[in-house]
Amino acid sequence: MTVAALAPYEFASRDRLENFHGKQLVYVWWEKHRMFSRPFVVALTPATPFRRLFEDYISTYAWHPDWPHIVWDQVIWQNGDEVFTPDFDASLAQNGIGHKDLIRFSTPGLDGIAGTGY
C-alpha cells in the first residue's frame, strides 16, 4: 500500500547505505542470551575481516558466564534465517554480509543463566 497524502509522497530511506560514508551496518545477536536485551549494531567497512567483527565486538558477550563454555566449532551461525559458516579471515563482503544484515549465533547446550534464555 502507499501513504494516503495530499501530494506526491516519496522519500529516501534515512538509513540507506550511502549515509554511512563507506561503512555498512551489521547487527549481531547471541540466541538465548537475552541478558544483553537486544541485538547490537556496528558500522564497519565491507572490507573489514569477520575476525575483527568477532574480536572487537562479538567478544563483548564475554561478560556472560556461558562465554568460556562455548565450543566454537559447534556454534551455528546465521545470516538472517540462512545458516552459514563464516570465514574469519575473509571480509564481511566476502562472507556475503550486506548492509543491515543480522548475524545471529546459537550455542547448543548453552541456554543462558540457569537455562532461562538469559
Binding site: 545477536w29 541478558m35 544483553f36 536485551s37 537486544r38 541485538p39 547490537f40 549494531v41 563483548t60 561478560w63
Partner: peptide, 10 residues
C-alpha cells in the same frame, strides 16, 4: 556491575 556498552537494534 553489568554495563553493556553496545548500541541497540531498534
Amino acid at each position: 556491575r553489568f554495563n553493556n556498552k553496545t548500541a541497540p537494534m531498534n
